[in-house]
Write a protein that binds this DNA or RNA. Structure first.
Length: 660
RNA sequence: GCCGGCGUAGCUCAGUGGCAGAGCAGCUGAUUCGUAAUCAGCAGGUCCGGGGUUCAAGUCCCCGCGCCGGCUCCA
């Protein structure tokens, strides 16, 4: 049973990224045991996190600090109720329900922190008790902790007993483990750093608790190092870099979540589209283009309307004869036509498939488009470029026969691998989302065809395993039309998010009546694979900004080369170099400002231009350039011709040059 | 959407209820420089918006909007 059957009273969040892929824990562990990869597939057992991992000193220390914080809060704010309080990646948190007259803000954190230090100084011992179901419930009732009681009752459906930890006057239902004595806790290695709302059990229908986050490390030095890292990460925040580098802006007047792409950002988009077009051409895709809006009926056919409506913009309503001041528009009688901004591209692509009869000889048919989509995300969710309302997706739909499904899925995953290698991504993991046959609401959440789910889930898993890709299973997170392979990344600021996504769709083709004539002359329904390896321009470029810290490889850099004449005598030579490079399609500028050379270098280094060509009298005379690459101290001189060839090759090959 | 915080020049940020400020960026002039900041001057403001308290509000109160951190969801 390993870890999967054990539930923790305090909850648990481990840092999945700090562990090898094989050691990934199901994220839903705290709520419901997930089958492990080996249990699902019968494959050899996979090493997953064992009980021992929770005996790590760091884990115990953070966990115990959470309890100390809860004790401090209950002392300073009597009547406060408890939620969960687990250790997390860089520290711990605890959720509280403060009594109504206790207003708490970030200013109060220092007070709580001070109280925590006092508790640590009391050298309180942690002791564990295991109580039978009945004793446990009695204990919790006596504690008057309604949230703990609710969770205990749930736990007792699977467990015969529950454990409690006591330190000083504080008792918590908790599986542990903890340190033995508060003396082991680092008085100056922790810091309460933020206050946030969090729904009880993560469900917005529940009460909102107040979560206090703390950072915690064994020593003050390590804490300070983490704080420094956090500061450094802020310098890589794509919102900051996006503004500084002129990539995008988001204007209140246009609307939240609707980025405006500045020239530098539009160039990056264009380069990504070129990359996608070339790569997809090699993989046998065909380009298509579709409009941004569509009539309502399409989304009834696809099934989006009942299931997806809450993230769609409300419909535009119009009368076809409105322009002529027609009778219907005038009187408002009759039904107006409803148009929706498209939240996805698939229905449009299905219409292209359906536009002509298809034979098995036409399959696989791979239709690709960078398609614009609009989703009405809730305002609190919007996040720079990584979470927006208007986006442009690296989309494609592959229509395949059942026999082709496995190979096509594998090709799609290979495509991901190729892209990620090009960009140098390695900090990600795959998540395979399945339906949940036990979900009481499954008929509302999914197309309810058990055999189709079983078949398509099996094929997807087979594809991942034949390619040797590790993945995490996530039951209940499938798309409504089929299983999903998401690729999870983490931003520099530590937020996990989905970059690429792929789905196997067994439902929509049938709903759209898509057919192909098979070898034997009968009509059959194809499967559809949805895939978006380069995500959306918004999310992808947001991530790239952080990944590269704004210092793009030459092929992606909005300005690839800046020529810096040392004095005004070299202006003509600088212009000649610029024109030569431009005729080789290298994005080049000259810096002809009258600033000092040092200032010009500084300015263009700040812009993170990959290559600066410094030219003075020597270069002009010899017909050479002195090359100064971003992030590389050493400079090189070479003939202009040699440089043009080298940089053109570097761009054509989409190379990453990090050293000479 | 909900909980907490924040909103002053293009950017980063000072500003004790009593004249709206600095650095960088911009513009003008001087300077023409050998690998990360030459000098001087000028200009730049609905202090997020609306209402209120006050002799007086960037500052205090209320409402709205936006942003940031989280919850949840997701490309």
């Amino acid at each position: 049973m390993g870890n999967t059957g054990r539930l923790r009273a305090c909850g648990s969040v481990l840092d999945r990224f700090s562990l090898p892929w094989v050691a990934i824990l199901p994220s839903t562990l705290a709520h419901r045991p997930n089958p492990t990869r080996s249990e699902r597939t019968g494959a050899p057992p996979v090493p997953i996190i064992q009980e021992d991992d929770r005996n790590e000193p760091l884990y115990r220390m953070r966990h115990s600090l959470a309890h100390v914080m809860a004790q401090a809060v209950k002392k300073l704010y009597p009547g406060t109720l408890l939620g969960f309080g687990p250790p997390v990646a860089n520290g711990f948190y605890y959720d509280f329900l403060f009594s109504e007259d206790a207003e708490i803000s970030e200013d109060d954190l220092a007070r709580i922190q001070k109280e925590m230090r006092k508790i640590i100084d009391e050298h309180q011992e942690f002791s564990r008790e295991d109580l039978s179901a009945q004793d446990a419930l009695e204990r919790i009732r006596a504690m008057q902790e309604p949230h703990k009681l609710e969770y205990a009752q749930e736990l007792l459906q699977q467990h015969d007993s529950l454990s409690f930890y006591t330190n000083g006057p504080f008792v918590d239902m908790c599986e542990g483990p903890h340190v033995e004595n508060t003396v082991e806790l680092p008085k100056d290695g922790f810091k309460l750093d933020s206050l946030a709302g969090a729904y009880w059990r993560g469900d917005e229908n529940n009460v909102m608790l107040t979560r206090i986050y703390g950072l915690a490390f064994p020593t003050r030095k390590e804490l300070k190092e983490k704080l420094r890292q956090i500061e450094e990460a802020k310098q890589r925040d794509h919102r900051k870099l996006g503004r500084e580098l002129g990539i995008f802006i988001i204007s209140d007047e246009v609307g939240k979540g609707l980025p405006l792409w500045l020239p530098n950002g539009a160039i990056i988009r264009h380069e990504l589209e070129k990359l996608a077009y070339e790569t997809e051409f090699r993989y046998g895709y065909l380009p298509v283009a579709t409009p941004h809006i569509t009539k309502e009926k399409l989304y009834w056919t696809s099934g989006h309307l009942p299931l997806y409506e809450k993230v769609m913009y409300p419909p535009l309503r119009m009368y076809e004869d409105a322009e002529e001041g027609g009778a219907a528009a005038e009187s408002g009688e009759g039904e107006p036509e409803k148009y929706y901004l498209k939240p996805m591209n698939c229905p449009h692509h299905h219409m292209i498939y359906a536009a002509q009869p298809r034979s098995y000889r036409d399959l696989p048919l791979r239709l690709a488009e960078y398609g614009s989509c609009y989703r009405f995300e809730r305002s609190g969710q919007l996040q720079g470029l990584t979470r927006v309302r208007g986006m442009c997706m690296n989309d494609a739909h592959l229509y395949v026969t059942p026999e082709q499904l496995l190979e096509e899925l594998k090709a799609v995953m290979e495509l991901h691998r190729e892209y990620y290698e090009l960009f140098g991504f390695d900090n990600y993991f795959m998540r395979l989302s399945l339906w949940d046959p036990e979900d009481p609401k499954r008929a509302e959440k999914y197309f309810d065809q058990p055999e189709a789910w079983e078949f398509s889930q099996k094929i997807v898993q087979q594809a991942l395993e034949e390619l040797g890709l590790w993945y995490k299973l996530s039951v209940g997170d499938a798309a409504f039309y089929g299983p999903k392979i998401d690729v999870q990344f983490r931003t520099v600021l530590g937020r996990e998010f989905t970059l690429s996504t792929n789905q196997l769709d067994f439902a929509q083709p049938a709903r759209f009546g898509l057919k192909y004539v098979d070898r034997d002359g009968t009509e059959k329904t194809p499967y559809c694979i949805h895939r978006a390896p380069l995500s959306t321009h918004e999310r992808f470029i947001g991530f790239l900004l952080e990944h590269y810290g704004g210092a793009f490889p030459t092929w992606l850099a909005p300005v690839q080369v800046v020529v810096i004449p040392i004095g005004e005598n070299q202006l003509a030579y600088a212009s000649k170099i610029r024109d030569t490079l431009r005729s080789s399609l290298v994005r080049t500028e000259t810096d002809d400002s009258d600033a000092s050379m040092g200032k010009k270098i500084r300015t263009n280094v700040t812009r993170k231009v990959p290559i600066l060509l410094v030219v003075g009298g020597r270069e002009a005379e010899a017909g050479t350039v002195t090359v100064r690459r971003y992030g590389i101290k050493e400079q090189r001189s070479m003939s202009l011709e040699a440089f043009v060839d080298a940089v053109a090759e570097e761009i054509r090959g989409r190379q990453h040059v990090t050293e000479w």
